[in-house]
């Protein structure tokens, strides 16, 4: 027992720590990877996304006091975002595995990158692809809804978080796509599409992050923002998320996009994006401060 437990004051949440941070990171980045692999038509990269989501799901289970009873978390979809997220992850596994099997049977292990593969093939396959892509987006975004449902932590209670988590998941996915060796020569459409999306998402994410910290705040939310901008989380949020995770990759991608440099810097952008988006989850979870009961 801590003596301060009996004193009224602002307390940071300690219930969700590294296990949840890693869980949200792996599920988000896996879903993002899968989404872009779906666009590129690369079954190998889709598989990587599914494996990352699986790792994230294992971290989610590990955080429970009773992991072996983890199946119980699917019982209340009518109100619990944990249930909805768990069902989303299960649906993601089912749909993505079905889609990968179907594509592999149709086209072999990997589909050519010379044209958007999800625009070709039988209708049922395209429907399956669209469904698995939509569920992947949900898996990336649901942590924002989950955090928003915690009424005791006002900082998390914002409509910006689901959008930010989805963008962050997609950027993580792009980061992992950039990290894996890819023969971009002759696949100009893929590189142009991914770079355009990256730049767009980074700019949007930057302004949403600014909105998150610049919106008028009071009380507990103000303290959360203070932690992020000038308190103990400043280096992780300002330098890590905004600097390393958004601004530097944005500069690199703009340079590549403008033809000022080749694609050799892409893996660096990938590493920075991934690291920045991990720090995003860390910062948001650690900045959660309980509203005082009184």
């Amino acid at each position: 027992m801590e003596k301060k437990e009996f004193i009224i004051g602002k307390r940071p949440q300690k219930e969700w720590g590294w296990l949840i941070i890693l869980a949200l990171f792996f599920t988000g980045s896996g879903a993002g990877s899968f989404f872009f692999a779906l666009i590129l038509g690369s079954v190998t990269r889709m598989l990587m996304g599914v494996i990352l989501v699986l790792v994230g799901a294992l971290f989610l289970l590990a955080d429970l006091s009773r992991p072996l009873s983890g199946w119980r978390v699917i019982l209340r979809p009518q109100s619990s975002w944990i249930t909805r997220g768990a069902l989303g992850i299960i649906s993601f596994f089912v749909l993505s595995v079905l889609y990968m099997l179907a594509v592999s049977l149709q086209h072999g292990r990997s589909v050519s990158l010379s044209g958007a593969p999800w625009t070709t093939g039988p209708t049922w396959l395209m429907v399956l692809g669209v469904l698995s892509g939509a569920v992947a987006l949900f898996v990336a975004a649901y942590p924002g809804f989950l955090l928003g449902s915690m009424r005791a932590i006002p900082f998390w209670n914002t409509a910006l978080l689901p959008v930010l988590f989805m963008i962050s998941g997609l950027l993580c996915g792009l980061g992992e796509i950039y990290l894996m060796p890819l023969q971009w020569e002759g696949q100009t459409w893929g590189l142009v599409l991914l770079n355009s999306l990256s730049v767009g998402l980074l700019i949007l994410g930057f302004f949403l992050l600014l909105s998150l910290i610049l919106t008028v705040h009071s009380g507990t939310t103000k303290e959360s923002v203070r932690l992020l901008t000038s308190g103990s989380l400043r280096s992780q949020f300002v330098a890590g998320v905004i600097g390393i995770g958004v601004i530097v990759p944005l500069i690199i991608l703009v340079l590549i996009f403008g033809g000022a440099t080749g694609t050799s810097l892409l893996p660096i952008a990938g590493i920075l994006l991934t690291l920045g988006m991990l720090l995003f989850r860390y910062s948001i979870l650690k900045a959660g401060i309980y509203t005082t009961p009184v």
């Binding site: 307390r11 949440q13 955080d63 005791a152 309980y290």
Partner: peptide
């Protein structure tokens, strides 16, 4: 018997009324 210790209720309660007995 049904609680799996996800701690969501602790984070949701504005009255700090819940505790996980580890």
């Amino acid at each position: 018997q049904k609680c799996v210790g996800c701690k969501a209720c602790i984070l949701a309660c504005p009255y700090e009324a819940r505790t996980l007995w580890k």
